[in-house]
């Protein structure tokens, strides 16, 4: 199995073999981060541009560290500092970047499909670091890497994803990836947070937390976008927490060795109780560590894709 794609735009496009290749490569990269000199010369002379139209310290830092551990030069461009505010279009920005000849462009954008526009108009490899509510493939890959680390496999596991599925790119990418790897996915939350025909993506849909996590090997809690409350997805944070917050009692519906994941940042006491977030089931910090390895793997696999 060799990597042949120019870009990583979404989990929807990846086969099980491709996912396995990324995860296997990421496993090998874990070791680099444990060395005293946490750097290999592999991507010396390569330039990775982190083009972030949406604020994200976590993901951007993870990509930056990944690039630097591979000896690539990482350049961060954030929307506020860029020409975007001056009315330049995404395509103009892309062409300008292209002229400076970077090797990989990592893009995050609030508009779904933006990485696809970029991929169509520049020769560089594009990595989607989150586009609107569409996909966030590197998050799904690090989640799957974490699952494989903790459970030794992905196929056959039951994964419950709880929260605002409608507005979650993390949920979409995980649904595609986990399905490709043979896991069973259940999604849960109030019906206002379930996008129409979500079951046609190959998941079961529940409207209460107990049913969603019954028999689950993994629970993924999604961040409640508190600002979305304004558009009536739920009446109040208090009510949401009362019925959908993952606390110690509710976890009992899951398997005994269940692990809890969260893409961060956490709203403690809203979607997840503090004792669960910090408790023995939580693998949230493993996810962060694996994020660097997954992104190193992708930079490695995509490097030279444009040559």
């Amino acid at each position: 199995m060799r990597w042949t794609k120019k870009d990583l735009l979404g989990m929807k496009d990846l086969s099980a073999d491709e996912i396995r290749l990324i995860l296997d490569t990421a496993d090998s990269f874990m070791e680099v981060s444990t060395r005293e000199i946490k750097k290999v010369p592999t991507l010396r002379g390569k330039t990775v541009v982190n083009l972030f139209f949406e604020a994200s310290t976590r993901t951007r830092t993870s990509f930056e560290i990944a690039a630097k551990r591979l000896s690539a030069d990482a350049v961060n461009i954030s929307a506020s500092a860029s020409s975007v505010v001056k009315g330049e279009t995404l395509i103009d920005t892309a062409r300008n970047l292209e002229a400076m000849n970077p090797d990989i462009i990592v893009i995050r954008h609030s508009a779904a499909g933006s990485p696809h526009i970029l991929a169509r108009c520049v020769k560089q490899s594009i990595i989607n670091a989150g586009d609107g509510a569409h996909e966030h493939p590197t998050q799904a890959l690090l989640d799957m890497m974490t699952i494989r680390q903790k459970k030794g496999k992905i196929a056959g596991l039951k994964i419950a994803i709880i929260g605002d599925i409608a507005h979650s790119r993390v949920a979409r990418s995980n649904i595609h990836g986990l399905n490709a790897m043979g896991a069973k996915v259940a999604v849960g939350g109030p019906a206002t947070m379930m996008p129409r025909e979500i079951e046609r993506l190959g998941v079961t849909v529940h409207h209460n937390i107990a049913d969603t996590i019954r028999g689950a090997d993994i629970i993924m809690m999604l961040r409640v976008q508190i600002e979305r409350k304004a558009i009536c997805l739920f009446p109040s944070l208090r009510e949401y927490a009362k019925f959908f917050c993952l606390d110690r009692d509710r976890i009992r519906n899951a398997k005994e060795d269940v692990i809890i994941m969260h893409p961060g940042p956490i709203n403690r006491g809203v979607e997840i109780s503090p004792e669960v977030a910090d408790g023995p089931y939580s693998v949230i910090l493993d996810q962060v560590a694996n994020g660097v390895a997954v992104r190193m793997a992708l930079l490695y696999l995509l490097a030279g894709g444009s040559s």
Partner: peptide, 23 residues
């Protein structure tokens, strides 16, 4: 020791070589 990441031809080919384990 897996030396893939230190190879001087690691970026020369269109596809990256598979990584082995270093321990």
């Amino acid at each position: 020791l897996d030396i893939t990441l230190y190879r001087d031809d690691v970026l020369k080919k269109r596809q990256r070589p598979m990584l082995g384990k270093t321990d």
